[in-house]
């Protein structure tokens, strides 16, 4: 139970950064922190005490394996997370070239 709550606190830290920070780079960082906390929560759901990694070696017939389905989900989610982070950074660097600042409030004021 404590692990779940700590994991959720990590998510909340990301949410707090997303709402209160005004720097574009820090907003991207808080988005990726939220992503990390989701990965670890899904992985905690699939963990079984005394289980081994889900790879069949053929030595032990009745071994207990960790649930492979959340791992398959997170595997795709990690790579998608990298792609979206790269895209957000590209948008940030393009905005920086136009407005010479990372501050979203100034960008909002300087329309056009």
């Amino acid at each position: 139970m404590t692990v779940n709550i700590l994991c959720f606190i990590l998510f909340l830290v990301g949410l707090y950064g997303l709402i209160t920070r005004r720097n574009l780079v820090k907003i991207v960082i808080s988005l990726s922190i939220m992503e990390f906390s989701l990965f670890i929560f899904l992985e905690l759901v699939g963990y079984i005490d005394g289980g081994i990694a889900p790879i069949i070696t053929g030595q032990d017939a009745n071994a207990v394996y960790v649930d492979p389905l959340p791992q398959a989900m997170i595997l795709t989610a990690i790579v998608i997370g990298l792609a979206t982070t790269a895209m957000l950074m590209a948008i940030a660097i393009r905005l920086y070239r136009k407005y010479k600042t990372f501050d979203i409030r100034e960008i909002k004021n300087l329309k056009g």
Binding site: F39, E43, L44, Y47, A53, V66, Q71, I74, L75, V79
Partner: peptide, 12 residues
């Protein structure tokens, strides 16, 4: 990930 027995995810 390594502690939770997910070596695939750790490498990625």
């Amino acid at each position: 990930f390594l502690l939770l027995r997910a070596p695939d995810l750790a490498i990625v």
